[in-house]
Design a protein around this nucleic acid. Structure first.
Lengths: 136, 136
DNA sequence: CTGCATCCGAAAAGATACTG
DNA sequence: CAGTATCTTTTCGGATGCAG
């Protein structure tokens, strides 16, 4: 699983029309990957791992996201079937967002990635300082 | 592992100065996550899972990336210590890129995410069509 | 409270031409 | 071959105003 070839096999299978490959320029899966890996997309999905949240709760959790970007991000993720939006037409209105089953699977993998990055940050900062030193 | 809280614990620990949290607006780990999850960043890392490649080989593998974006992406990934660049000052010049050990760990997790997205694309496309139909 | 619509400057991406 | 420089186009993202 971890040693199989990434690109050739995928592109080959995609060319045969048997599957999707993000490496293909026009493959729809690339748009979805972009929705997810877009900075706000990944943070929003990761934030939703903990449960169901209202709009402004999410906004506080994803520190620094603007209203507009969170709104756009949630729409893209909802469209891809990763996030479920539940609106109650009360006054004041209440809208809850939570992950779908698929969204949960994606968020888990994203979280593994985020955890790794966070855990290795000291090492990464050393690399950055070394790079900045030698590349003036 | 899959059930622990994502945001509160992380932000709490970050506030104590004990770790990094991508959910923090000013945390350096967020920049690294952005380098990786940037569309070209993730595709480049995934493409490098297969081994060592030259600049134009990579460009062909990551279908659609421009010279400029690949160059910028590789520089960011090299700075973060995820990609190793080996230049031979021959004529014509030859430059090889490969993952570092840390880059490999990141690429594996990224690949899990990409595989999931590709495998679930049919389901995602159904969701998209449903969304587009109801949100005209 | 939960958003969407609009405008605007800043930033990033893309295309193209050029250099060592 | 491996990029850099430059220019144009697109997108990002914040601010504001408004509706349900």
């Amino acid at each position: 699983m971890t040693t199989e070839s990434t690109v050739e096999a995928a592109v080959g299978r995609e060319a045969e029309g048997l599957c999707f490959s993000v490496f293909g320029r026009a493959c729809p899966s690339r748009h979805v990957l972009k929705d997810i890996t877009h900075a706000w997309g990944s943070l929003t999905l990761a934030a939703l791992r903990d449960g169901s949240f209202r709009f402004n709760e999410l906004r506080r959790r994803v520190d620094g996201v603007s209203e507009k970007m969170l709104s756009q991000t949630l729409q893209a993720l909802e469209r891809d079937g990763l996030v479920h939006r539940e609106a109650q037409l009360t006054n004041p209105p209440r809208v809850d967002y939570r992950l779908t089953e698929l969204g949960h699977e994606v968020a888990e993998r994203l979280y593994e990635l985020i955890s790794l990055v966070e855990a290795r940050m000291p090492e990464i900062e050393v690399a950055q300082r070394g790079y900045d030193r030698t590349h003036s």
